[in-house]
Write a protein that binds this DNA or RNA. Structure first.
Lengths: 95, 95, 95, 95
DNA sequence: AACGCATAAGTAAGAC
DNA sequence: GTCTTACTTATGCGTT
């Protein structure tokens, strides 16, 4: 990192950040974040659109979300959790 | 929409979705969502990295987040809200 | 409600709230909210403690949360969702 | 804690929780959590009601939320954050 | 009834 | 390693 990008000097870098700000670097940071957030937002919209389309075709979005969630999990972990769940259900008379 | 994509027939589309599922369509939906979610996740990581780098350069990530939040708002709306906030603060002796 | 509690007059109640604030009412509102939020926070802590104790006794908190979640749902709704889930899984070869 | 409450034995407590469940203890845990969650839910409703009433009296709920948020912070911390915020704003020409 | 906001819960990362 | 804090997602609520 370029020294010019330092937001504070070395004397009290931890508690007094109110010195030596590089405006150009800060601007660049903000710009990059805003660009990425826009990208993320667009992707989120695209995801919502897919769910919405699926719903329009008679599918249940909530259940599709569940499918997505299940597929994200490690199969072995999933099996374990379901075994424990089954066990607890029985202990509670929910079997 | 193609009829083949219908998850339910026209007789009881609202309450009995358990017929006429097009597996290919459902698979495509799931694939698209998973692809988009991965994209979103990568973007989220990139955002975190920018904050992290900025922090390493002495900037306060929390305040940068606040900056991003403020810039996202409509300036006019923002001014109004701040005016009301100021008013409430005074009414509460927080001025 | 007492007229004195009005935050705005009748001329433009919707868009110009910057008049006629009753400081006492606003203070009361803030006090009530803060009191209730503290209460809520204490309850949340108590819940965490129960999970924590259960974990200490060898139970899996994640699965207990799942149990709680399942019990909150309407049994009929639950059955439907699980039937649809099963259907989708089969369509995706996850059966 | 009573040994009878143990959910697993000492041989493989970490990875095989599927033994020695005390159903009574599990039931008690679930009951306590459900009771506390109901309590929390009621408090949340009461909070919403206060905001709603305030809104009916012409106050802006969003700004009240901001007030609550600000008052929750440590005043010293708050001042510091605002100082940094001011600094960043100036660096970005948002002053 | 659909849309967005706001809360709440679960998850993951970072600090001590 | 624990423990809190922040981010993400999901649900519920109010609004239009």
């Amino acid at each position: 990192m370029d020294n010019a990008s330092c937001a504070s000097n070395t004397v009290n870098a931890d508690e007094n950040p109110i010195q030596d700000i590089d405006p150009g670097y800060l601007q660049a940071v903000v710009d990059r974040i805003e660009r990425l957030e826009e990208e993320k937002s667009e992707t989120a919209t695209a995801i919502r659109d897919v769910y919405s389309e699926a719903k329009g075709n008679g599918f249940d979005p909530k259940v599709i979300r569940e499918i997505i969630r299940l597929r994200k999990q490690d199969p072995h972990e999933l099996d374990e959790q379901e075994a424990i769940l089954h066990l607890y259900k029985q202990a509670l008379g929910m079997g």
